[in-house]
Simulated scan of single mutants.
Amino acid sequence: MPTLGLIHNSATLVPIFTEIAARVMPADVKLLHFVDESTIKNTIAAGHLQKSTMRQVVRLVGSAFDAGCDVAMVTCSSIGKAVEMAAELYDQPVLRVDRAMAEKAVASGTRIGVVATLPTTLQPTADLVRRVAAEQGKAIEIVEHLCEGAFQAVMAGDGAKHDRIVSEGLTEGMKGVDAIVLAQASMARVVASLPEGAVSAPVYASPELGMEHARTVLAGLGQ
């Protein structure tokens, strides 16, 4: 039975990825979830990805493989650099949830908007899009937009305020772009709630695209 290990920084992501897996994964794929909130909380507190957090991510990936997973995917964009480090250290596939999203966005045009509710997620996501474009030899322009106060609102339990700030960022802050990248998976539900035509460009979120990529990787293991 092929097994996918999903490493999260919040328990709220478990049902989201379980639901996506039910739709996109073959019935014989087993999921194992690993949750460690310290990876994001310590990164936010420090304002950047620390070496101690990188080591913790590497350990979490190792735990997933020790538990019998064939592929490990980290579902947080803020710690992408640590995921790439882990990929160098293990023989089994280690995936970034946002890689497929970045590739889709780069393929969509040259002016790419990146929206985030945290600066610690905005920068790594924008950097990933730049790197993917460089690998493809494509010149792009990135328009960064930080939805100030949205993360604090959702942490305080005010989901409505979070959604209002994010929707303003998507509609007002992203005018004139060819594609929009959501730096946080939690923002996808805001896009779904907006009226048709409110956002001028295609919007890419990592969970669905990341899981589809993981499906392809799992399928290739048996060949």
Results as ranks from 00 to 15, higher is better:
P124K: 02
L13W: 05
D28E: 14
S108F: 01
K104W: 01
G176L: 10
L221P: 01
G210L: 04
H162C: 15
E196G: 08
L170T: 10
E141A: 15
G5N: 11
I112F: 08
L122H: 10
A21D: 05
S167D: 07
Q56K: 15
H48Y: 14
L122C: 08
L128S: 03
L218N: 09
I140A: 04
N9W: 11
G197R: 04
L31H: 08
E148L: 12
P2G: 06
L218A: 09
T39V: 15
T53D: 11
S63R: 12
P124Q: 09
L49G: 03
G157N: 02
K138M: 12
T39E: 07
I16T: 11
Q184F: 02
V203S: 12
V74A: 00
A100L: 03
D163E: 10
P15S: 01
E168Q: 14
V106K: 06
A156S: 15
P119M: 06
M101F: 00
A46H: 09
I40R: 13
F34A: 03
G68S: 14
R164D: 15
R23A: 09
P119S: 10
M101D: 04
A87V: 05
A156N: 15
H33T: 14
A156M: 11
V94E: 13
A198Q: 09
A192T: 03
T171D: 06
L118P: 03
A214E: 02
V61C: 14
I112Q: 02
E144I: 03
S200M: 13
S186T: 02
V129T: 05
A183H: 07
G109N: 03
V203G: 05
V129E: 01
Q152R: 14
L13I: 12
A134R: 15
T3C: 14
S108W: 00
V106D: 02
F65G: 07
E148C: 03
N42P: 01
I16Y: 00
G68Q: 10
F65S: 04
K175P: 00
K138T: 12
M155P: 01
V71P: 07
P207D: 04
G222K: 14
Q123E: 13
L60D: 03
P93A: 09
R164A: 15
